[in-house]
């Protein structure tokens, strides 16, 4: 295996990407993509029933990715398990060789495909980070000594477009105090906003992986603007997509340029290829070829 996610982030600019676990037990296409990108990304982030949509366990899929030479960044959210289940999963994941944990609260079940599910949230993201960090330092939930303990690289998420941003930055600091070392952000589409955010987040001292999402069509751009993003995609980007002969290719090109444009400013980029995981190898090739650099 190439350099681990943790070592890569310590060493310099790091690219990670997101891959959702399948809603099935057979997933040759995902594995094919994972194998292709294994040497090109430092970590593959595995979502945990993202948006409350039922998928294969993120721990199981992380383990499968480990088997094909990737370093998984295992996402674990607080929505579905109480503290007993979370702790056993932390031990289980560590025993399976998973080293990186990205902790988050988790979208509420009514937003997903099991709206009647009981929302657990027995621990919140800060408490789970503190617990995970404690495990990594040989302490159990009560502060007792834990022998043969896991050693996780703990991270989380931060929303740079949250208002009031001061509140989100306080929460970021709280997460850092709880042991989080790296953060993934919502997608950015302009470098100016990245600079503003990095300045704001600087006091936390945490490693920042700037979110990148390739736009494959005007329909997707409209959807993101209306339903996902709190800050609209800049005109320059939407015009390029709108007038492109191949909107998907243009979206990948924009992302590649963006990644190469932030390379010198930040710890890393985190690619979230919404509904275009198959394009990931091509995007990474474009980044390597130095698009926009």
């Amino acid at each position: 295996m190439a350099k681990s996610f943790r070592d890569s982030l310590e060493a310099g600019f790091t690219i990670t990407a997101e891959i959702p676990p399948p809603k099935s037990v057979s997933f040759p296409k995902s594995i094919e993509v994972a194998k292709k990108v294994a040497g090109k990304v430092a970590g593959l982030n595995v979502t945990d029933n993202q948006r409350g949509m039922m998928r294969m366990s993120s721990m199981a899929f992380s383990h499968i990715l480990l088997g094909v030479g990737c370093d998984p960044v295992w996402q674990i959210c607080c929505r579905d398990r109480n503290r007993l289940a979370l702790q056993s999963d932390l031990l289980g994941a560590s025993a399976l060789g998973i080293k990186n944990v990205c902790v988050m609260t988790g979208d509420y079940p009514t937003l997903g495909d099991n709206p009647g599910a009981k929302a657990v949230y027995d621990l919140d993201a800060v408490q789970l980070m503190k617990l995970t960090d404690g495990f990594s330092n040989g302490k159990d939930i009560r502060g007792g000594v834990m022998k043969n303990h896991p050693d996780f690289f703990v991270g989380g998420v931060v929303n740079p477009f949250y208002e009031p941003i001061e509140l989100e930055l306080l929460k970021l600091q709280k997460k850092v105090n709880a042991g989080a070392k790296f953060f993934q952000t919502q997608p950015f589409f302009d470098i100016e906003s990245v600079d503003t955010f990095l300045e704001q987040a600087k006091p936390s001292g945490a490693k920042m992986l700037i979110g990148v999402t390739p736009i494959k069509s005007m329909k997707m751009l409209k959807f993101l603007n209306e339903n996902v993003l709190t800050k609209p995609i800049p005109d320059g980007v939407s015009k390029r997509i709108e007038f492109a002969s191949d909107q998907m290719m243009e979206g990948l090109k924009i992302s590649a340029e963006f990644i190469n444009g932030i390379r010198d400013r930040v710890d890393g980029a985190h690619i979230m290829p919404i509904n275009q995981v198959a394009s990931l190898p091509l995007l990474l090739d474009m980044v390597e070829e130095g698009n926009g650099a």
């Binding site: 609260t105 509420y108 929302a119 949230y121 919140d124 800060v126 408490q127 931060v158 929460k171």
Partner: peptide, 12 residues
């Protein structure tokens, strides 16, 4: 709705 005790979830 998530009964969070340590600040907002960031989803607002």
């Amino acid at each position: 709705p998530k009964s969070l005790l340590n600040g907002p979830c960031g989803g607002a």
